[in-house]
Design a protein around this nucleic acid. Structure first.
Length: 266
DNA sequence: AATTGAAACAACCGCCTCGCA
DNA sequence: TTGCGAGGCGGTTGTTTCAAT
């Protein structure tokens, strides 16, 4: 038994969207907002699956999309974020205003992968291709190295001030002594959404099922200048940092590294 | 000018997560 | 507690465009 289809496929269009369909979708969402995607097609007079409508809107019709070529800064930011997050395209997209996860995913597969390969870097691991696998064996280890603090407030420059190496788990690899490639910091960590205060459950706003977290909040970093989701508990919103330290602390990683160092000493 | 292969982009598919009854 | 439905995500495929021959 397979899954039931997400919509009645017998009477739905597939393939490229026409101008008329785009116009209908835009007009409907302008009038009613992003409501229930499942019922939207019928309400908007579209012979499309709700998922298809959502994808079309999010990836191509949303008014805040940037479109156009990626800048060199965006390239490097994507590479850095991918080295931290892996194929979490939606999280990566959250750090690139006006870009969508699908766009970034395609861009990665068509441009950046080749770019890294031409540099002799494995796009999956962000490590030199000719390095022997299994410098660290048997488990996934993330190492993060921070350079001296940047004093700019530019997010993209700031994230360039640190680098990471993600070494994938090697299946069936024999356990052995660790050989850390970066002596600065060894993090046996995984990235996961922060625990929420009990009085602030993750409730969606009108229309959505889940309240989406910005990148900072997803990493569990409070009061970040990078917060764009306006969570009450986060207190961010782009610029409310009252730190007396002039150097901009990107995503509060300076603080985070202290906490992680505490975890690491084992 | 025609053909062909590669690159780029758009869209779909299936699975997972989460909220709700 | 459990099952269902909807939204979201990542992987994959299909189509179009472009450059080389």
């Amino acid at each position: 038994m397979g899954r039931s289809p997400c919509c009645e496929k017998a009477h739905t269009n597939k393939g490229a969207w026409t101008k008329e369909e785009d116009d209908r979708l835009i007009a409907y969402i302008r009038a009613h907002g992003e409501g229930c995607w499942r019922s939207l097609p019928k309400a908007a007079g579209l012979l499309r699956c709700g998922k298809s409508c959502r994808l079309r809107w999010i990836n191509y019709l949303r008014p805040d999309l940037k479109r156009g070529n990626f800048s060199e800064e965006e390239d490097e930011l994507i590479i850095k974020l991918h080295s931290i997050l892996g194929n979490k395209w939606s999280l990566i997209a959250g750090r690139l205003p006006g870009r969508t996860d699908n766009e970034i995913k395609n861009y990665w597969n068509t441009h950046i992968r080749r770019k890294l390969l031409s540099r002799g870097i494995d796009p999956a691991t962000h490590r030199p291709m000719n390095e022997p696998a299994g410098a660290i064996v048997g488990e996934e280890v993330k190492t993060i190295s921070f350079s001296s603090g940047s004093t700019t407030t530019n997010n993209i420059k700031d994230i360039n001030s640190f680098s990471t190496t993600v070494i994938p788990k090697v299946e069936n690899a024999p356990a052995g002594p660790r050989e850390l490639r970066c002596p600065d910091l060894n993090l046996d960590l995984c990235i996961s959404p922060p625990s929420q205060p009990d009085d602030q459950p993750l409730k969606t706003g009108s229309g959505g099922r889940r309240r989406s977290l910005c990148f900072s909040c997803s990493l569990g970093i409070r009061d970040s200048r990078d917060c764009s989701c306006q969570n009450n508990w986060c207190g961010g919103g782009g610029g409310s940092s009252s730190s007396s330290d002039d150097s901009y602390d990107f995503l509060r990683l300076k603080g985070a590294v202290l906490e992680y160092r505490g975890l690491e000493t084992k």
